[in-house]
Design a protein around this nucleic acid. Structure first.
Lengths: 117, 117
DNA sequence: CGGGATCCGAAAGGATACTG
DNA sequence: CAGTATCCTTTCGGATCCCG
């Protein structure tokens, strides 16, 4: 009675909550966005995302591996090279991330540059 | 050269980053989702979202007001009633949030109940 | 190169009490 | 009802050092 959720949907959805807080976590969204464009190596991601530290990148990457959104591929050469790429579920995030990106271009796009920096 | 971003898009987008970390912040996604279904009063939101404290709800709501995604309406009665609702930009988040929700239903949906605990 | 382990200050978040 | 203020615990995140 007090709630009008009688239409079938509810105000709160655990799965949605898990998903949004997963991809919205500190640097995760940026990492996922970079990976949407193809596999990337650790240092490529590090270089592509401003202010992201190596420790945090490793941490986020491990979390994403745990959620099976990202997979890790090791190329043993003398110089070890590790590439990260989206799994099937990760790739399916593209639609959602693109929607967020479109909204961002329309609404947060404003010249909010923090100077020339 | 070293990057194949010559196709026009780049690995990092400040606006996207701002947006994803905004809506993905701790409880923000859940609050927005609840508000998509119509205006809600403070305590309604508080009751709808498990484990969310009043302090945090107030904080998130103020952040969203600052971003002009949510607007506040005060109904002065003897019992003060405050309702929150999405602004134009907030309503346009529906598409993005719905996409996230659809992904969640397919991938995180699994009966990941934390048991009876 | 691609991380893991540790240390420590900063920030987020919960609990409680109080106010209009 | 709808918050605010304070306290105090937990987590986050940066710096540094080390390893395969």
């Amino acid at each position: 009675m007090s709630e009008q959720s009688s239409d079938g949907s509810s105000d709160f959805c655990p799965r949605f909550h898990h998903a949004i807080e997963l991809i919205g976590k500190r640097w995760t969204g940026a990492v996922l966005r970079a990976l949407l464009r193809g596999p990337r190596r650790f240092n490529e991601l590090l270089g592509a995302i401003p202010d992201l530290s190596d420790r945090l990148l490793a941490e986020r990457l491990r979390e994403l591996e745990g959620e099976e959104i990202v997979s890790r591929h090791v190329d043993p050469g003398p110089p070890v090279r590790v590439a990260y790429e989206l799994t099937a579920s990760g790739k399916e995030l593209e639609t959602a991330l693109t929607c967020v990106g479109q909204w961002a271009e329309r609404w947060v796009a404003p010249p909010k540059r923090k100077r020339t920096a």
